[in-house]
Structures are given as structure tokens and as C-alpha cells.
Computed example of a mutant assay.
Amino acid sequence: MIRAKARLPLVPPAILLALPLALLASACSTAGRYPSLALRDVERAKPVAGDPAPPVRPLPPASASLVTRLDGLVAIARDADRQFQAQRPAAERAVGAAGDVGSDSWSTASVALASLESSRSNAMAALGDLDTLYVDARTAGALEETPSAKAIAAARDQVNGWVAAQDDVIAHLSARLPG
């Protein structure tokens, strides 16, 4: 005699997956109070009326060694600007008298212009050092304008003014030079 095998009913796979998920979801629920959704003090963008203002601590001044270094960099740029201004009249005369490309007068004007660019290079090197100091000070101050960053910015602005004026002169003379 042949016996029929007992067949179990097939359970759809979706139900098999849903059962463990339901058990996991029920384990996450809490019995009791839920946390408040109200703004916490830390989440407030602006202080609420009645909140005490945070104390403002004065920042320490820039260190003496930084001030000395800034003075040195500004002095280098000032000397470069003096040298530039001393050479400027001769370069202007040479460019004004320059002849055709390749002539002696054109070569003299080109050399005078190169001399101006060379005297500007020390000011640009000082400006590069000031830029590096400024970035380091701002990074260390965590976006806060520290006295060190302010002192560096002031020196940087002064040197940048000299370099920008020198750039204008060189661009003007270069445009006038034939060729």
C-alpha cells in the first residue's frame, strides 16, 4: 500500500519576512514617556528673552613675537616699494622712448620693466608670508577674529596696497611697450 505524504500548506514568503520584522519593531517601542520635541537650549539660534547673555571674554593681544615678525615683513615690503618707486621714473622714460621690437631702446625699456618686476618680488614674498600667517591665525581662532588675525590682516592690507599699486604701474608700462 502506498501511503500519501502529508503536505504542509505553503506560507507565502512575504509573511515569513513580515513576522521577524514585526517582532523587531515591537522590541523598539517603549512603554512610558516619549522625549519632548520642544527646542532645547543648545538648539536655539537666538537667545530667548530673559536668558542671560553669555559673558564676553576679551581676547589676549597679539604676541610680541608675532608683532615683531609682522613689523619685519612690512619693513621688507616697504623697502621693496621704495626701491620700486626709485626705479619707476627711469622705467617710464625708457618705455616712453622705446622704439620697435628688438631695437636698443626697446631692449633698454624691457630691462627697466624687468627691474621693476624684480623689485616688486620682495614685496610679493612678504605678502605671501602674511597670507600664510593670516590663514593659520584664522584656522587656530576657529572662525573667530582674534587679535592676532586682526594684526596680520592690517599688515597684509598695507602690503597688499603697495603690491596692487606696483601691479598697476607694471601693467600700464607693459601696455605702452611696443610688441
Rank of each mutant, 00 (worst) to 15 (best):
M1Q: 11
M1S: 12
M1N: 10
I2L: 09
A6F: 08
L8H: 11
L10M: 10
V11T: 14
P12S: 13
P13E: 05
L16D: 07
L16Q: 13
L17A: 15
L21K: 06
A22W: 09
A22F: 11
A25I: 11
S26L: 15
S29W: 14
S29C: 14
S29I: 15
S29P: 04
G32E: 05
Y34A: 14
Y34L: 15
Y34D: 09
S36P: 07
L39R: 13
L39G: 04
A45P: 02
A45K: 02
V48P: 10
V48E: 12
G50F: 03
D51A: 15
P54L: 11
P55T: 03
P55S: 08
P58N: 06
P60F: 00
S63Q: 03
S63A: 06
L66W: 05
L66V: 06
L66G: 06
L66A: 01
V67R: 15
V67N: 07
R69Y: 04
D71V: 00
L73C: 10
V74Q: 13
V74N: 07
A75P: 04
A75K: 07
R78K: 14
D79T: 08
D79A: 08
D79R: 08
D81A: 13
D81E: 15
Q83E: 15
Q83C: 10
Q85S: 08
Q85A: 09
Q87W: 09
R88V: 04
R88W: 02
R93Q: 15
A94R: 06
V95D: 01
V95N: 04
A97K: 13
A98V: 08
A98E: 11
A98P: 14
A98L: 11
G99I: 06
G99S: 08
G102D: 01
S105A: 09
W106D: 09
S107Y: 13
T108D: 14
T108S: 10
A109Y: 00
A109V: 06
S110I: 01
V111E: 05
A112F: 01
A112D: 02
L113H: 13
A114Y: 03
S119Q: 09
R120E: 10
N122L: 12
N122I: 04
A123C: 07
A126S: 11
A126C: 06
A126L: 01
G128M: 02
L130F: 00
L130G: 11
T132W: 03
L133R: 08
L133K: 09
Y134M: 12
V135M: 09
D136G: 13
A137F: 02
R138W: 07
T139W: 04
G141A: 03
E144T: 10
E145A: 13
T146P: 02
T146N: 01
S148L: 01
I152E: 01
A153T: 06
A154M: 11
A154N: 13
R156H: 14
N160P: 01
G161T: 09
G161Q: 05
Q166K: 02
D167Y: 01
D168E: 07
V169H: 04
I170M: 05
A171K: 04
L173Y: 09
